[in-house]
Amino acid sequence: GHYRIRINGREFEIRGISEEEIRHLEEALRNGADEKILKEIVDRLRG
């Protein structure tokens, strides 16, 4: 998958993330885990 997200007015492209991972992120966001989720995304993109 290849997705664009906007955070604090800046747009980011996220590549190589699966539909299942996105559902997991959405679930966590609904549970209020904003900073933790951003850290997970950044860590994943770093490799």
Rank of each mutant, 00 (worst) to 15 (best):
E35C: 13
R15D: 05
A33M: 13
I7N: 00
E27V: 07
H24Y: 14
G16N: 12
E19S: 10
G16W: 08
R10F: 15
R6A: 08
E19V: 12
Y3M: 15
L38W: 07
K36T: 12
R4W: 05
F12Q: 01
L38C: 05
R30T: 09
I17S: 03
E27N: 09
I37P: 01
E19Q: 12
L38E: 01
R15Y: 14
G9H: 01
D43M: 04
E19A: 13
L25K: 00
E40I: 10
Y3D: 09
A33Y: 08
F12T: 01
E11K: 01
L38T: 02
D34V: 15
R30S: 11
N8V: 01
R30A: 13
L25C: 03
E26H: 05
L45H: 07
S18H: 04
R44W: 12
I22F: 14
E11R: 01
G9I: 01
E11L: 07
D34L: 14
L29W: 04
R15W: 14
E40Q: 12
A33F: 10
L38M: 10
G16F: 11
E20I: 07
N8C: 10
R15T: 12
R15K: 12
G16H: 12
R44P: 02
R30F: 08
E40S: 11
I14H: 00
E13C: 13
F12K: 00
E40L: 12
R23K: 14
L25T: 01
L45Q: 04
G16K: 02
G47V: 13
R4H: 15
E26I: 07
S18K: 05
R23G: 10
G9N: 04
R46C: 11
N8L: 03
R44M: 09
A33V: 14
S18W: 02
G1D: 13
G1L: 07
E40A: 12
K39H: 13
K36A: 11
H24V: 13
I37S: 07
A28H: 14
R4G: 03
E27T: 12
L38V: 09
R23E: 11
D43P: 04
E26M: 08
H2D: 15
L25M: 04
R46S: 14
I5M: 01
R23A: 14
L45Y: 07
H2Q: 04
L25N: 00
E20K: 09
L25Y: 03
L38F: 08
A28S: 08
G47S: 12
H2F: 07
I41K: 02
G16C: 09
E35V: 08
R10V: 15
E21Y: 06
F12N: 00
L29K: 03
G47E: 13
K36E: 10
I5G: 02
I22R: 04
R15I: 15
K39I: 15
E21F: 06
N31P: 03
G1W: 02
F12P: 00
I22M: 06
D34P: 14
G32L: 07
G16Q: 05
I5W: 01
I41F: 12
E13T: 04
E26F: 05
H2E: 07
I17C: 08
I22T: 03
L38S: 01
I37H: 08
R4L: 15
K39E: 13
E21L: 05
N8W: 03
R4A: 03
R6K: 12
R44S: 09
I22Y: 08
R10G: 03
E35M: 11
H2R: 09
E11T: 05
E26V: 08
R10P: 00
V42Y: 08
E35G: 07
E26W: 05
G47K: 11
I37F: 10
L38K: 02
I22Q: 04
E11N: 03
A28C: 08
R15S: 10
R23S: 11
R4Y: 06
R23F: 11
G9L: 01
L45F: 08
G47L: 13
E13F: 05
I22P: 00
H2N: 14
I7V: 05
Y3V: 15
H2C: 15
L29V: 13
R44F: 14
I5P: 02
G9D: 06
I5K: 00
I14A: 01
I14V: 05
D43A: 06
E35A: 12
E20R: 06
R4V: 15
G32I: 10
I7G: 00
I5A: 01
L45N: 04
R44T: 11
V42P: 01
F12Y: 15
V42M: 10
A33R: 07
I41G: 01
E20S: 11
L25E: 00
R30K: 12
L25W: 04
L25G: 00
A28W: 13
H2K: 04
E35S: 12
E21A: 09
L29A: 05
E26N: 06
I5R: 00
G32F: 06
K39C: 14
E13Y: 11
E13G: 01
D43H: 10
S18F: 02
G16T: 05
E20V: 09
A33G: 09
Y3E: 11
E19L: 11
G9K: 01
N8E: 04
E27S: 10
D34N: 12
H24W: 14
H24S: 11
D43Y: 02
R30M: 13
N31D: 10
H24R: 11
E40W: 13
E13W: 08
R23L: 10
N31C: 13
R15Q: 12
D43R: 10
R10S: 11
L25S: 00
G1H: 07
I17K: 02
E11Q: 03
E11H: 03
H24M: 14
K39W: 15
R10W: 14
L25I: 14
G47W: 02
E40Y: 04
N8S: 04
R30N: 09
N31V: 10
E27Y: 05
H2S: 15
I7K: 00
R6L: 14
H24L: 13
R46K: 13
G32C: 08
I22S: 02
G32S: 05
L29Q: 06
K39P: 02
L45V: 09
L45W: 08
E26D: 06
I17M: 06
V42N: 03
E11F: 06
G1F: 06
G9S: 02
R30D: 07
R23D: 05
L45T: 04
I5F: 03
L29H: 03
V42D: 02
G32V: 06
D43C: 13
R30P: 01
R4F: 11
R46M: 15
G16V: 10
R44E: 06
S18T: 12
E27W: 04
E20Q: 13
R6V: 15
V42K: 02
R46N: 15
E19N: 10
E35Y: 07
A28K: 08
R44Y: 10
I14R: 00
L38H: 01
N31H: 09
